[in-house]
Amino acid sequence: MTDRIEQPPHRPAGIVTRATAALIDLGVVLAIMGVTYLGLALVRLLYSPQNFRFPEPAALASATVTLTVSIVYLTGCWATTGRTVGALAMGLRVVTVKGRLLRLPRATLRAVLCVLFAFGLLWAAVDPHRRSLQDIVLRTRVVYDWRKESSELVG
Results as ranks from 00 to 15, higher is better:
L40V: 13
I71H: 05
Q7E: 08
V69T: 10
G27M: 02
L30F: 15
L38M: 14
D25N: 10
S48C: 00
V28A: 14
Y47C: 02
R18T: 08
L46S: 06
G27D: 04
P49F: 02
M33N: 13
A22L: 13
A58I: 03
I15S: 09
G27I: 03
Q50I: 01
P57I: 00
A58G: 10
T64A: 15
Y73R: 09
V28C: 13
R18H: 09
N51Y: 01
L40P: 00
W78E: 14
L30H: 09
A13R: 07
R18W: 04
T64L: 14
A41T: 08
V16Y: 14
A61T: 04
I32H: 07
G34F: 12
M33K: 12
G76N: 00
S70A: 14
T36C: 04
L38V: 11
A61Q: 05
Y73H: 09
L74M: 11
T68P: 03
L40H: 11
Y73C: 07
T75S: 07
I32F: 15
R18Y: 04
V29W: 06
Y47T: 13
P9N: 03
I5L: 13
Y37A: 12
I24P: 13
I24C: 07
T2A: 10
R44A: 07
A63R: 13
V72P: 06
I5W: 02
T75Y: 02
P9H: 01
T2C: 01
A59Q: 05
Q7T: 14
E6K: 13
V29E: 07
I24F: 12
M33S: 13
I15E: 10
G27V: 01
D25Q: 09
A41R: 12
M1Q: 12
P9D: 06
P8V: 04
M33T: 08
Q7L: 05
Y73M: 06
V29S: 07
W78K: 00
A19Y: 13
A19I: 08
L60Q: 10
P12I: 01
L26V: 12
Q50K: 10
I32A: 15
W78C: 03
I71N: 04
I24M: 03
V43I: 15
V35Q: 04
Y37N: 08
V72Y: 06
L38Q: 14
Y37R: 12
E56T: 09
V72T: 04
A19Q: 07
L74F: 14
L67M: 11
S62C: 02
T20N: 08
I32C: 15
V16S: 11
R18P: 14
A21W: 05
R53M: 04
V69W: 09
R44N: 09
V28E: 06
V28L: 01
T2H: 14
A41V: 06
A58S: 12
L23K: 11
G14T: 05
S62M: 01
A59R: 08
A19W: 12
T66K: 12
E56R: 04
P8F: 03
G39M: 02
N51C: 00
H10Y: 06
H10V: 01
F54I: 09
S62Q: 12
S62I: 01
V16I: 15
T75P: 09
V43T: 14
D25W: 08
I71D: 07
T20S: 15
S48E: 10
L60R: 10
V43W: 04
V35A: 15
S62R: 11
P49T: 04
L23P: 12
I5K: 13
D3E: 10
L42Y: 05
L74H: 12
T36K: 05
